[in-house]
């Protein structure tokens, strides 16, 4: 794979008259943790859904892992992991059965699934829980397990759509440690969040408002540029500017 993991040019998605994503162009490098910030309804989820092949764009172009999101979504699906806002494991299956199932639909052999299962359960300290119902698992573990399952097939690119909403701070830290370890192995992480402290963990962040990107840089540069101490304050400044002059958007 080349060094660019995700690339879009003027990517647009309209729902009727409403433009959810408006001419967004980004380039994400391999092994990068790329954060997407924005208020609810800013277009973060729509953006991710287009990149994962769940939504067809109405305009612009996009490539994921070198494949065209319009015509090669089947190949993209082999190369990405995805974790949505909702908990996506089956509560009425055991932890082991959930991993077997997702391994199966990605076409992994039983031996591969078994090996990966042991690895994930060890990392999460869940070996004892393997045959427990997923519903009985504490919330923090659930998120970790969902991430492990989403990365079962060793995807080079992982999309995380608000993965830490509803998770306690301690579990969030652990979660981000796993993300950093994965990025160190060369996995590209594409993550949306509305926790501003989490934004600091990203290599680069883009801030979205009303479907457009209004800022894109490293957390450090953004803070320097806006002369602020935290991304939270940068974000608030940007949102104020937006409401004062909605037509004055960076496109």
């Amino acid at each position: 794979m080349n060094e660019t993991a995700v690339k879009t040019e003027n990517l647009t998605r309209k729902f009727g008259d409403f433009t959810a994503v408006d001419r967004v162009s980004i380039e994400v490098n391999r092994g990068e943790i790329f954060g997407f910030l924005g208020a609810n309804g800013a277009g973060k989820t729509t953006m991710i859904r287009m990149l994962c092949g769940l939504l067809v764009p109405t305009g612009g172009m996009g490539h994921v892992a070198g494949f065209d999101i319009r015509t090669e979504s089947e190949k993209i699906k082999q190369n990405i992991g995805y974790m949505s806002q909702k908990f996506s494991l089956y509560n009425d299956l055991t932890i082991s059965e959930n991993i077997d199932f997702y391994g199966g639909i990605y076409g992994l052999s039983p031996a591969e699934v078994k090996e990966k299962k042991i690895r994930i359960l060890k990392e999460l300290n869940l070996i004892r829980w393997a045959n427990s119902m997923t519903a009985d698992l504490p919330p923090g573990f659930k998120q970790g397990l969902a991430l492990g399952t989403a990365m079962l097939h060793d995807p080079p690119i992982v999309f995380l759509d608000e993965p830490t909403s509803g998770v306690d701070p301690a579990s969030r830290r652990e979660f981000w440690e796993v993300i950093h370890q994965s990025a160190a192995k060369g996995i590209t992480i594409f993550v949306t969040t509305h926790f501003m402290d989490e934004a600091e963990y990203c290599n680069r962040i883009s801030i979205m408002s009303a479907g457009s990107i209004i800022a894109l840089d490293t957390p450090r540069n953004l803070k320097k540029h806006h002369q602020r101490d935290s991304i939270q304050q940068v974000f608030i400044d940007l949102m104020k500017e937006e409401t004062q002059s909605p037509e004055n958007r960076a496109g």
């Binding site: 994962c52 092949g53 769940l54 089947e74 699906k77 082999q78 990405i80 995805y82 974790m83 949505s84 806002q85 909702k86 908990f87 996506s88 494991l89 089956y90 997702y102 639909i105 990605y106 076409g107 989403a150």
Partner: peptide, 16 residues
């Protein structure tokens, strides 16, 4: 429950 979305991002085909 949202699990459908997780299935749809996998390479599984609709007929499967």
């Amino acid at each position: 429950t949202g699990t459908l979305e997780q299935i749809l991002v996998s390479p599984i085909k609709s007929y499967q």
